[in-house]
Each structure stands twice: as structure tokens, then as C-alpha cells.
Design a protein around this nucleic acid. Sequence first.
DNA 1: GCACTTAGTTGTCAATGTCAACCATTGCGG
DNA 2: CCGCAATGGTTGACATTGACAACTAAGTGC
Lengths: 144, 144
Amino acid sequence: MDMNQTHIFGESLFRLLHAYKRALRENFTAVGIELTVSHIRVLKRIAGMPQCTAQAVAAGMQIDKGRIARLMKELETEHLIEKRHHPEDSRSRQITLTHQGRTLIERINTVEAETSEYMVAGIDKEQLMTCAHIINDMVKNLET
Amino acid sequence: MDMNQTHIFGESLFRLLHAYKRALRENFTAVGIELTVSHIRVLKRIAGMPQCTAQAVAAGMQIDKGRIARLMKELETEHLIEKRHHPEDSRSRQITLTHQGRTLIERINTVEAETSEYMVAGIDKEQLMTCAHIINDMVKNLET
DNA sequence: GCACTTAGTTGTCAATGTCAACCATTGCGG
DNA sequence: CCGCAATGGTTGACATTGACAACTAAGTGC
């Protein structure tokens, strides 16, 4: 890959995430979900981690722990998550989805799946899987 | 691609761009380039467009024209670009790189190439090209 | 001439990222 | 056990990026 193609690759990444984020926002608001993309990402992360804690979310998503604290505070005031005292470490809190949170996650997954379907329309499934693996490899290269 | 894999794909995009941007910022500041990633993206775009105008940059990058105006104003105060009266439309300005701008672009290209090299280390070149095409296809799907 | 569009600038605010200070705990070496 | 560094979390402050709308000036077409 020469320098010119590399350039195009990096630019394409900016374009893709920009467009993807915009599509997500649009589709979420279209069905009446008022959360920001960040809130939704965190909520999904919590949903995927049993006995979740804030630091685990922050570490797992490579997001500043301060930002996570604020996002979670807002998710809590929206009654989408609950914080309980951690049984073994009173500094820490265990985060769990509320019933509302679980219901919302289902709607979120639907919207996200539809958005992704649109994004990958007409693209060969096998190449797509390859692409997904490569993206993960690139993340690994950069994050270590 | 089932729903679960789709989810992972979207999340990976967030992760990748986050890590890529951070790596870029780090490498730019390491060599003493103090511009933000946005400023650099715009500067590169200008470099790649002869007889460039603000609206062309905004349209080409899918970025708000107000934001472009501000970024360009700052690039101008840094003496990296110049605005001249457009010969055929006095509303418009032709944007050109200054000598300093052209010099900087070379350094930028080097840093960016190194960052990309690091990002794609150990990844099959052919698969990488496929991935780049797919990314462009996805952008096309979303932006139209 | 007049309505409409276009290029650019500016104001305002929301969303996101980064860094540092801080508190309350915990765990650990002595 | 004590002192102290490390950890989980919260908060403050600020920079970056994105979105939208109002506005000026100038072109375009009827």
C-alpha cells in the first residue's frame, strides 16, 4: 500500500464513522430514542457485561473514566441502570440494567441492526467478515 | 451477518477511529506539529484540490461549511493557506497553500504514513485493499 | 427589478475527548 | 497495626468536533 492509498484509507475511516454516527442518530431519534450515541454505546456495553463496574466499562471501551462516570450518572437519572454497592469493595458499584433499560436495549439492537444492514447493503458477506477481522486487528495494533 | 456480529462491527468502528485519531495526534505532536486533526484533514484536502474553494472542501468532506470557514480562518492566521478573490465569482475565494503550507504537508504525509504503517502492520496487503474498498462502499451506502 | 440561490461568515449550543484534582476505600510492606 | 501507594469513582475545567440557523454579499434567472 503506497502513501497515496494509505492517505485515502485514513480519510475513508473518518468519513465512514461520521456517516455511520449520523445514520445512527437519525434512526434512533426516528423511533423516539433520545439518548446520544455515547449513552447508547455505554448502555450496550453494560448489557453485555454481567457484574459490570464503571472501571470495567471504561477500560473495555478505552474511554476516559470521568466521562463514563457522567454518562452513567445520566443513564441512572433516566432510570435505565442502577448502581448497587459492590459486596466486596465499598469503593466500587455494581451496575445493572433496570427493566426499562433491558426493554430499551432491545429497541436499540433493532435500530442498530437496521442501520448496519443499510450500511452493508450489496457488500459480499464473506469480504465483510474479512473486513471486520482486519478492523479488529488494526485496533489491536493501535491499542497496544 | 447476524445481529450479534453486526453489533461488534459497529463498535469496532468506534474503537478504530478513536485509536487512530489518538495515534495521529500523538505522532503529530511528537514531531512538533501543533494542529488539530481537523485542521490537518482540511489542509490535506486543500493540497489535493487545485483551485480549491471552501464550499468544495465542505462538500467533499461532508463537513459543515461553518466549521470549514473557521478551520480555514485558523489555517490562514497560521500562514498555511491563502485566500484570493475568485476571478469569476466575487462571493467566492480561491484557496491555495502557502510555501509553509506545502512544506508542512510533506511532514504531515510522512507522519500519517508512519501511523498507518503501524496500524496495518502484519495485515495481508490484499485483504487490506479489499477492506479499503468495502469501507468506501459503506460510505457510499450511508452518504446517499 | 425582484425573487431565489449560492459562498462565506458568525453565533450558539450539544456531544465528545482529555487531563487533573480530589475523596473514600483497599491492600500491602514494614 | 501503621503509613502509604494504588484503586474506583466523582467532579471541574477546557479543547475538539459537529449541527443548525441567521446573516451578508453577490450571482442567476424570470
